[in-house]
Design a protein around this nucleic acid. Structure first.
Lengths: 147, 147
DNA sequence: ATTTATGCAAATCGTTTGCAAACCT
DNA sequence: AGGTTTGCAAACGATTTGCATAAAT
Protein backbone atom coordinates (compact mmCIF):
# COMPACT_ATOMS: atom_id res chain seq x y z
CA UNK A 1 0.00 0.00 0.00
CA UNK A 2 2.90 2.41 0.50
CA UNK A 3 5.01 3.54 -2.42
CA UNK A 4 8.75 3.86 -2.87
CA UNK A 5 9.99 6.90 -0.94
CA UNK A 6 11.16 8.72 -4.03
CA UNK A 7 7.78 8.17 -5.62
CA UNK A 8 6.09 9.80 -2.66
CA UNK A 9 8.62 12.61 -2.73
CA UNK A 10 8.10 13.22 -6.40
CA UNK A 11 4.31 13.10 -6.05
CA UNK A 12 4.45 15.53 -3.14
CA UNK A 13 6.66 17.87 -5.09
CA UNK A 14 4.41 17.85 -8.15
CA UNK A 15 1.37 18.52 -6.00
CA UNK A 16 3.14 21.35 -4.20
CA UNK A 17 3.71 23.00 -7.54
CA UNK A 18 -0.09 23.33 -7.77
CA UNK A 19 -0.43 24.35 -4.12
CA UNK A 20 -1.93 21.00 -3.34
CA UNK A 21 -1.16 18.79 -0.39
CA UNK A 22 -0.06 15.19 -0.47
CA UNK A 23 -2.68 13.98 1.96
CA UNK A 24 -3.30 10.54 3.36
CA UNK A 25 -6.06 9.78 0.85
CA UNK A 26 -3.80 10.83 -2.03
CA UNK A 27 -0.95 8.74 -0.67
CA UNK A 28 -3.26 5.78 -0.55
CA UNK A 29 -4.31 6.26 -4.16
CA UNK A 30 -0.70 6.54 -5.31
CA UNK A 31 0.23 3.50 -3.23
CA UNK A 32 -2.54 1.36 -4.64
CA UNK A 33 -1.69 2.40 -8.19
CA UNK A 34 2.00 1.75 -7.55
CA UNK A 35 1.27 -1.78 -6.45
CA UNK A 36 -1.16 -2.47 -9.26
CA UNK A 37 -0.04 -4.44 -12.24
CA UNK A 38 -2.36 -2.62 -14.63
CA UNK A 39 -4.48 0.52 -14.83
CA UNK A 40 -7.39 0.51 -12.37
CA UNK A 41 -10.91 1.85 -12.54
CA UNK A 42 -12.37 3.72 -9.60
CA UNK A 43 -14.50 0.77 -8.45
CA UNK A 44 -11.34 -1.34 -8.55
CA UNK A 45 -9.44 1.25 -6.54
CA UNK A 46 -12.20 1.47 -3.94
CA UNK A 47 -12.28 -2.29 -3.66
CA UNK A 48 -8.55 -2.41 -2.96
CA UNK A 49 -8.73 0.01 -0.07
CA UNK A 50 -11.91 0.41 1.88
CA UNK A 51 -10.67 3.63 3.44
CA UNK A 52 -11.16 5.38 0.12
CA UNK A 53 -14.34 7.38 -0.34
CA UNK A 54 -15.72 7.44 -3.83
CA UNK A 55 -16.21 11.17 -4.25
CA UNK A 56 -12.80 11.95 -2.83
CA UNK A 57 -11.23 9.36 -5.11
CA UNK A 58 -12.71 11.12 -8.13
CA UNK A 59 -11.62 14.50 -6.83
CA UNK A 60 -8.16 13.37 -5.89
CA UNK A 61 -7.50 11.53 -9.12
CA UNK A 62 -8.43 14.69 -10.98
CA UNK A 63 -5.94 16.64 -8.88
CA UNK A 64 -3.27 13.98 -9.28
CA UNK A 65 -3.86 13.99 -13.02
CA UNK A 66 -3.45 17.75 -13.23
CA UNK A 67 -0.28 17.46 -11.19
CA UNK A 68 1.04 14.89 -13.65
CA UNK A 69 1.22 12.14 -11.06
CA UNK A 70 -1.36 9.85 -12.61
CA UNK A 71 -2.63 9.35 -16.11
CA UNK A 72 -6.24 8.71 -17.05
CA UNK A 73 -7.06 6.11 -19.69
CA UNK A 74 -10.34 5.95 -21.53
CA UNK A 75 -10.84 2.32 -22.45
CA UNK A 76 -13.62 0.49 -24.20
CA UNK A 77 -16.03 0.11 -21.30
CA UNK A 78 -17.78 2.79 -19.29
CA UNK A 79 -15.03 3.27 -16.72
CA UNK A 80 -12.03 5.50 -16.81
CA UNK A 81 -8.86 3.83 -15.59
CA UNK A 82 -5.84 5.31 -13.88
CA UNK A 83 -2.18 4.49 -13.71
CA UNK A 84 0.91 6.30 -12.46
CA UNK A 85 2.39 8.75 -14.93
CA UNK A 86 4.99 7.21 -17.22
CA UNK A 87 7.83 9.36 -16.00
CA UNK A 88 7.24 8.08 -12.48
CA UNK A 89 7.36 4.44 -13.44
CA UNK A 90 10.36 4.54 -15.75
CA UNK A 91 8.96 3.20 -19.02
CA UNK A 92 6.94 4.51 -21.91
CA UNK A 93 4.30 1.98 -22.76
CA UNK A 94 1.00 1.36 -24.50
CA UNK A 95 -2.17 -0.56 -23.82
CA UNK A 96 -3.89 -3.74 -24.78
CA UNK A 97 -7.57 -3.00 -24.32
CA UNK A 98 -10.02 -5.87 -24.10
CA UNK A 99 -13.28 -4.92 -25.74
CA UNK A 100 -14.97 -7.83 -23.99
CA UNK A 101 -14.22 -7.20 -20.31
CA UNK A 102 -12.66 -3.75 -20.44
CA UNK A 103 -9.40 -4.76 -18.77
CA UNK A 104 -6.30 -2.86 -19.77
CA UNK A 105 -2.81 -4.32 -19.90
CA UNK A 106 0.49 -2.59 -20.55
CA UNK A 107 2.91 -3.40 -23.32
CA UNK A 108 6.01 -1.79 -24.73
CA UNK A 109 6.84 -1.32 -28.37
CA UNK A 110 10.32 -1.71 -29.86
CA UNK A 111 12.36 1.48 -29.49
CA UNK A 112 12.89 1.72 -33.24
CA UNK A 113 9.15 1.83 -33.82
CA UNK A 114 8.72 4.46 -31.15
CA UNK A 115 11.29 6.79 -32.57
CA UNK A 116 10.01 6.43 -36.13
CA UNK A 117 6.54 7.05 -34.85
CA UNK A 118 7.55 10.13 -32.92
CA UNK A 119 9.24 11.57 -35.93
CA UNK A 120 6.25 10.91 -38.17
CA UNK A 121 3.78 12.30 -35.65
CA UNK A 122 5.84 15.42 -35.18
CA UNK A 123 5.59 16.09 -38.87
CA UNK A 124 1.85 15.39 -38.99
CA UNK A 125 1.21 17.71 -36.06
CA UNK A 126 3.14 20.50 -37.69
CA UNK A 127 1.21 20.09 -40.94
CA UNK A 128 -2.07 20.47 -39.08
CA UNK A 129 -1.09 23.32 -36.80
CA UNK A 130 -1.60 20.92 -33.93
CA UNK A 131 0.32 21.26 -30.69
CA UNK A 132 0.96 17.66 -29.59
CA UNK A 133 0.95 16.64 -25.96
CA UNK A 134 1.29 12.88 -26.19
CA UNK A 135 0.34 9.97 -28.39
CA UNK A 136 -1.85 7.00 -27.63
CA UNK A 137 -1.13 3.69 -29.24
CA UNK A 138 -3.60 1.06 -28.17
CA UNK A 139 -4.31 -2.40 -29.40
CA UNK A 140 -8.00 -3.24 -29.09
CA UNK A 141 -9.13 -6.84 -29.13
CA UNK A 142 -9.87 -9.79 -26.87
CA UNK A 143 -7.63 -10.54 -23.91
CA UNK A 144 -6.33 -13.98 -22.99
CA UNK A 145 -8.97 -14.37 -20.26
CA UNK A 146 -11.88 -13.69 -22.59
CA UNK A 147 -10.81 -15.73 -25.61
CA UNK B 1 -27.38 14.32 -46.96
CA UNK B 2 -27.53 11.29 -49.25
CA UNK B 3 -24.55 9.01 -49.63
CA UNK B 4 -22.91 7.50 -52.68
CA UNK B 5 -25.08 4.66 -54.00
CA UNK B 6 -22.49 1.98 -53.38
CA UNK B 7 -22.10 3.24 -49.83
CA UNK B 8 -25.82 2.81 -49.26
CA UNK B 9 -25.69 -0.60 -50.90
CA UNK B 10 -22.82 -1.72 -48.74
CA UNK B 11 -24.43 -0.38 -45.58
CA UNK B 12 -27.69 -2.12 -46.43
CA UNK B 13 -25.89 -5.36 -47.08
CA UNK B 14 -23.98 -5.23 -43.81
CA UNK B 15 -27.17 -4.50 -41.91
CA UNK B 16 -28.99 -7.32 -43.64
CA UNK B 17 -26.33 -9.69 -42.40
CA UNK B 18 -27.58 -8.88 -38.89
CA UNK B 19 -31.24 -9.01 -39.92
CA UNK B 20 -31.46 -5.27 -39.64
CA UNK B 21 -33.14 -2.88 -42.00
CA UNK B 22 -31.59 0.11 -43.67
CA UNK B 23 -34.28 2.54 -42.66
CA UNK B 24 -34.69 6.20 -43.40
CA UNK B 25 -33.24 7.28 -40.05
CA UNK B 26 -30.20 5.04 -40.59
CA UNK B 27 -29.74 6.37 -44.10
CA UNK B 28 -29.80 9.86 -42.72
CA UNK B 29 -27.11 9.03 -40.17
CA UNK B 30 -24.90 7.45 -42.81
CA UNK B 31 -25.49 10.38 -45.13
CA UNK B 32 -24.59 12.96 -42.52
CA UNK B 33 -21.46 11.05 -41.56
CA UNK B 34 -20.50 10.63 -45.20
CA UNK B 35 -20.68 14.37 -45.76
CA UNK B 36 -18.86 15.22 -42.55
CA UNK B 37 -15.21 16.15 -42.66
CA UNK B 38 -14.50 14.70 -39.23
CA UNK B 39 -16.01 12.38 -36.64
CA UNK B 40 -19.23 13.74 -35.11
CA UNK B 41 -20.72 13.54 -31.66
CA UNK B 42 -24.40 12.81 -31.24
CA UNK B 43 -25.29 16.42 -30.43
CA UNK B 44 -23.44 17.41 -33.60
CA UNK B 45 -25.33 14.80 -35.61
CA UNK B 46 -28.66 15.95 -34.24
CA UNK B 47 -27.81 19.54 -35.04
CA UNK B 48 -27.07 18.65 -38.65
CA UNK B 49 -30.40 17.01 -39.24
CA UNK B 50 -33.38 17.99 -37.17
CA UNK B 51 -35.31 14.92 -38.28
CA UNK B 52 -33.07 12.77 -36.09
CA UNK B 53 -34.41 11.78 -32.69
CA UNK B 54 -31.82 11.49 -29.97
CA UNK B 55 -32.75 8.08 -28.59
CA UNK B 56 -33.03 6.59 -32.06
CA UNK B 57 -29.68 8.08 -33.00
CA UNK B 58 -28.05 6.32 -30.05
CA UNK B 59 -29.83 3.08 -30.88
CA UNK B 60 -29.10 3.26 -34.59
CA UNK B 61 -25.46 4.15 -34.16
CA UNK B 62 -25.08 1.12 -31.92
CA UNK B 63 -26.65 -1.06 -34.62
CA UNK B 64 -24.54 0.53 -37.34
CA UNK B 65 -21.45 -0.01 -35.25
CA UNK B 66 -22.26 -3.69 -34.74
CA UNK B 67 -22.83 -4.01 -38.46
CA UNK B 68 -19.41 -2.50 -39.12
CA UNK B 69 -20.82 0.51 -40.93
CA UNK B 70 -19.67 3.13 -38.45
CA UNK B 71 -16.87 3.31 -35.96
CA UNK B 72 -17.11 4.84 -32.49
CA UNK B 73 -14.31 7.00 -31.18
CA UNK B 74 -13.84 7.77 -27.51
CA UNK B 75 -12.11 11.11 -27.40
CA UNK B 76 -11.04 13.32 -24.56
CA UNK B 77 -14.35 14.96 -23.73
CA UNK B 78 -17.56 13.38 -22.51
CA UNK B 79 -18.99 12.61 -25.94
CA UNK B 80 -18.47 9.62 -28.14
CA UNK B 81 -17.91 10.47 -31.77
CA UNK B 82 -18.77 8.49 -34.87
CA UNK B 83 -17.38 8.18 -38.35
CA UNK B 84 -17.93 5.79 -41.25
CA UNK B 85 -15.95 2.56 -41.01
CA UNK B 86 -12.55 2.76 -42.67
CA UNK B 87 -13.26 0.11 -45.23
CA UNK B 88 -16.20 2.16 -46.48
CA UNK B 89 -14.22 5.31 -46.95
CA UNK B 90 -11.13 3.73 -48.49
CA UNK B 91 -8.38 4.98 -46.21
CA UNK B 92 -6.90 3.84 -42.95
CA UNK B 93 -6.33 6.85 -40.74
CA UNK B 94 -5.79 8.07 -37.20
CA UNK B 95 -6.95 10.94 -35.05
CA UNK B 96 -5.77 14.25 -33.75
CA UNK B 97 -7.71 14.75 -30.54
CA UNK B 98 -7.94 18.20 -29.01
CA UNK B 99 -7.94 17.98 -25.25
CA UNK B 100 -9.24 21.52 -25.06
CA UNK B 101 -12.39 21.43 -27.17
CA UNK B 102 -12.75 17.71 -27.83
CA UNK B 103 -12.76 18.01 -31.61
CA UNK B 104 -11.33 15.11 -33.57
CA UNK B 105 -9.54 15.40 -36.89
CA UNK B 106 -8.31 12.68 -39.19
CA UNK B 107 -4.76 12.17 -40.33
CA UNK B 108 -2.86 9.48 -42.18
CA UNK B 109 0.52 8.12 -41.27
CA UNK B 110 3.21 7.18 -43.79
CA UNK B 111 2.70 3.67 -45.15
CA UNK B 112 6.11 2.55 -43.95
CA UNK B 113 5.24 3.47 -40.38
CA UNK B 114 1.94 1.65 -40.64
CA UNK B 115 3.46 -1.57 -41.85
CA UNK B 116 6.23 -1.53 -39.27
CA UNK B 117 3.65 -0.83 -36.63
CA UNK B 118 1.40 -3.64 -37.78
CA UNK B 119 4.25 -6.09 -37.68
CA UNK B 120 5.32 -5.01 -34.21
CA UNK B 121 1.79 -5.08 -32.84
CA UNK B 122 1.20 -8.53 -34.26
CA UNK B 123 4.19 -9.79 -32.34
CA UNK B 124 3.15 -8.06 -29.11
CA UNK B 125 -0.36 -9.49 -29.32
CA UNK B 126 0.97 -12.99 -29.82
CA UNK B 127 3.26 -12.65 -26.81
CA UNK B 128 0.33 -11.68 -24.61
CA UNK B 129 -2.19 -14.20 -25.90
CA UNK B 130 -4.20 -11.25 -27.10
CA UNK B 131 -6.49 -11.50 -30.11
CA UNK B 132 -6.16 -8.13 -31.84
CA UNK B 133 -9.07 -6.44 -33.58
CA UNK B 134 -7.62 -3.07 -34.51
CA UNK B 135 -5.15 -0.50 -33.29
CA UNK B 136 -5.71 3.07 -32.25
CA UNK B 137 -3.04 5.63 -32.85
CA UNK B 138 -4.10 9.04 -31.62
CA UNK B 139 -2.23 12.23 -31.14
CA UNK B 140 -3.58 14.18 -28.18
CA UNK B 141 -2.89 17.86 -27.85
CA UNK B 142 -4.27 21.28 -28.74
CA UNK B 143 -5.86 21.89 -32.12
CA UNK B 144 -5.19 24.91 -34.32
CA UNK B 145 -8.44 26.58 -33.22
CA UNK B 146 -7.63 26.34 -29.54
CA UNK B 147 -3.96 27.36 -29.60
C1' DA C 1 -50.86 -8.58 -40.90
C1' DT C 2 -46.98 -9.12 -38.53
C1' DT C 3 -42.70 -7.97 -37.33
C1' DT C 4 -39.35 -4.27 -36.56
C1' DA C 5 -38.07 0.63 -35.86
C1' DT C 6 -39.30 5.09 -33.94
C1' DG C 7 -39.75 8.78 -30.53
C1' DC C 8 -41.15 10.55 -26.35
C1' DA C 9 -40.41 10.51 -21.54
C1' DA C 10 -38.57 8.26 -17.68
C1' DA C 11 -34.76 5.56 -15.76
C1' DT C 12 -29.78 4.45 -15.34
C1' DC C 13 -25.27 5.00 -13.77
C1' DG C 14 -20.54 6.93 -13.86
C1' DT C 15 -19.13 11.16 -12.32
C1' DT C 16 -19.54 15.82 -10.10
C1' DT C 17 -20.80 18.98 -6.54
C1' DG C 18 -22.79 21.39 -2.06
C1' DC C 19 -21.89 21.61 2.41
C1' DA C 20 -20.72 20.70 7.23
C1' DA C 21 -17.22 18.26 9.78
C1' DA C 22 -12.26 16.76 10.05
C1' DC C 23 -7.53 17.79 8.94
C1' DC C 24 -3.18 20.10 8.27
C1' DT C 25 0.22 23.77 9.10
C1' DA D 1 -7.07 30.09 13.84
C1' DG D 2 -7.48 29.89 8.73
C1' DG D 3 -7.60 27.64 4.94
C1' DT D 4 -7.84 22.91 2.64
C1' DT D 5 -9.54 18.28 2.21
C1' DT D 6 -12.95 14.86 3.31
C1' DG D 7 -17.21 12.17 2.97
C1' DC D 8 -21.96 11.90 2.73
C1' DA D 9 -25.89 12.60 0.05
C1' DA D 10 -27.95 14.93 -3.62
C1' DA D 11 -27.39 16.63 -8.43
C1' DC D 12 -25.73 16.14 -13.18
C1' DG D 13 -25.66 14.61 -17.79
C1' DA D 14 -24.58 11.32 -21.46
C1' DT D 15 -26.64 7.23 -22.65
C1' DT D 16 -30.23 3.58 -22.25
C1' DT D 17 -34.78 1.72 -21.97
C1' DG D 18 -40.21 1.00 -21.64
C1' DC D 19 -43.92 1.44 -24.21
C1' DA D 20 -47.38 2.93 -27.41
C1' DT D 21 -47.36 4.35 -32.36
C1' DA D 22 -45.54 4.32 -37.14
C1' DA D 23 -42.98 2.15 -40.75
C1' DA D 24 -41.29 -1.64 -43.41
C1' DT D 25 -41.86 -6.06 -45.73
Amino acid sequence: MSAAPDLDDEAASRLRRLDQRYTRARRTLVGVLASAESPLSIPQLLARDRALAQSSAYRNLAVLEQAGVVHRIVGSDEFSRYELAEDLTRHHHHHLICSRCGEVQDFTAPASIESDLDRALQRVAAQHGFDPDHHRLDLVGTCANCR
